[in-house]
Design a protein around this nucleic acid. Structure first.
Lengths: 339, 339
DNA sequence: CTGAAAGCGCTAACAT
DNA sequence: ATGTTAGCGCTTTCAG
């Protein structure tokens, strides 16, 4: 058996309670005793048993990240993992551990209930894809320390954190105008793609504010892939009124767009400017390198980690906000700013 | 306070010990008692307290994955997360939880020691980048259930699991020969890049076996990026003796290579074939889509998970092997097989 | 087949 | 400032 708090107490000629107080900095212990206890701990190579400690304290110093993983999750959604890295960093600073658990949306609610019934974790971070009204009710009634990544798409009591995609759209549009482009186009994902939709809203609000009109034909939506980006760009170029800058709702659309522009002999960024969203995975790989509106995903994870920690302290605290502002990374696909 | 085992015992008119046995399937309990106990558990909505259970059993049902994360880890190394997803799936099947913890290589050894002194985890998965001779000694002496991801580059007692990159190289070369290409070239990463080196070894062994000579000029090494791939390809094309197929050690080199070939008017795959390694992130995005040698990273993680579980059961079991064989994914950058 | 009893190692309320 | 005491909720002998 390994060395316990009682062994240390004996060696330091004191009681277990005192040793505990020394470890947890209770304050009211004389320096002499502290020294003796610490010496004894060192001599014996003592390490408090985490399991016993969790049990006695009724806490695990662990938060669970629940999302749906499975094959290809790592490749198709690196953002999630970048966030996890940020969360881990925030949690580690306070001595918390981060566990990941893959769960299907249907099972998520039951699982969260079980986790808190059995007290396996101190808090949960929920990916927006697995939340439900039932989960909302559960979390509210039981006051479960939680935070949802992604703004819920139904009315709820959840605490959540998200990226402000609308603001991102505003930044993109404003930036292009500042570069001297004056006829913008937007290539987005399908109607159901909320992210793309929010980005478009932001764009439109800026144009509206600047009294810039955008012809209907310059607003196109399609699949979120390269081929679709290519096709939408061709459509754009075939119109009588052509844009001098294109906002692409994501990297893949931008890739197709750039390819089409090049094939048509358009020079980027002189003839036509291109701006996209997100650094990853292509913005720095394409020629020309893309100017993008990006957010610091790691930082967002870090914010999430800090959030869940404060929810663990005060479970009834409600948090809802857009963390981590987007910003423009200037590169080669847009002209230099003139303003 | 929530409902405990004693509440269940009382409701089922039996003892806590019996309830425990029912939960853990001790066998020697009458069906009648089992029914009563299960009924009581359901009636009371009982869920065993995981912390108390961990404490009493002296196990946490948790394995810790240690690696260095930090900013950009998610984007620059999606493979790691794909593996994690696989590990989680294997662990979840046996009721284990996966925790992730970022740690610098220098601190890793001390941290692992602390984890096992304080019994925070039942086992650890170590990324090869954080192992050291000191860690080897620690793990061996203390019989710490562990598995290293990546073959150690120094003599050690570690259990490890890795990808067989040499075999991957063999597959690539063999495949090209089967397609009727007969003059191969290899574009690799820098000398220090062990993965690239192993892939090259595999290529050479096949060529040797087939008595195919490869001119020195067809073996090039450079940075593992697009520009380097581009430059190396131009060098290749400027030689008197030109290859009819190029093996690119990674996706980025392949991207530069394809770009250079296109600019020189070479038709892929007719004039020159291109094969690369790994699906991610570009192989299906480039035009033409790349034929690649790929491995199932999720599966590798799954194997790793199963491995660590068996090590937890038998810590002195040694495991060392190349899990998950690579295979060729045929796409557009190579001719159809003729054999 | 069942139950009483003795912890697992630490914390925290309460005395002193 | 320190020690005593009583758990935390479950598992596991060991007797019956």
């Amino acid at each position: 058996m390994s060395v316990t708090i009682r062994d240390v107490a004996k060696a330091a000629q004191t009681s277990a309670a005192t040793v505990s107080k020394v470890m947890n900095g209770s304050g009211s212990i004389s320096q002499a005793t502290i020294d003796r206890v610490e010496q004894a701990m060192r001599d014996l190579g003592y390490h408090p048993n985490a399991r016993a400690r969790n049990f006695a304290r009724q806490s695990t110093k662990m938060v669970l990240f629940l999302t749906t993983l499975g094959k290809n999750a790592g490749f198709s959604n690196p953002h999630m993992f970048e966030m996890m890295s940020g969360m881990e960093e925030a949690l580690a600073k306070k001595g918390y551990l981060l566990c990941v658990k893959s769960i299907a949306a249907e099972e998520a609610c039951g699982f969260v209930e079980k986790i808190f019934d059995s007290k396996e974790a101190d808090g949960v971070v929920l990916h927006a894809s697995i939340i439900s009204p039932a989960m909302d009710e559960l979390v509210a009634v039981r006051e479960i320390p939680h935070i949802v990544i992604g703004i819920p798409d139904f009315p709820s009591h959840f605490s959540w954190i998200d990226i402000d995609n609308r603001l991102g759209g505003e930044l993109a549009a404003r930036y292009l105008l500042q570069c001297g482009y004056c006829s913008l186009a937007f290539l987005g994902g399908r109607q159901e793609d909320r992210i793309s939709g929010h980005r478009l809203e932001g764009v439109l609000s800026v144009l509206n504010e600047h009294d810039v009109l955008i012809p209907g034909g310059h607003l196109r939506r399609g699949a979120s892939d390269c081929d679709s980006g290519y096709a939408m760009t061709e459509e754009l170029l075939s119109q009588k009124e052509r844009p001098d800058a294109i906002i692409c709702a994501n990297n893949y659309i931008a890739y197709g767009c750039v390819m089409a522009l090049k094939e048509h002999g358009e020079v980027i960024p002189e003839d036509i400017g291109v701006i996209a969203f997100d650094e990853y995975p292509l913005s720095r790989i394409l020629k020309p390198m893309l100017t993008v509106v990006d957010i610091d995903v790691f930082d967002m994870g870090y914010q999430t980690g800090k959030c869940i920690l404060s929810k663990i302290r005060k479970p009834n605290l409600t948090v809802r906000y857009y963390s981590t502002l987007p910003s423009v990374l200037e590169r080669e696909s847009t002209r230099k700013k003139v303003i």
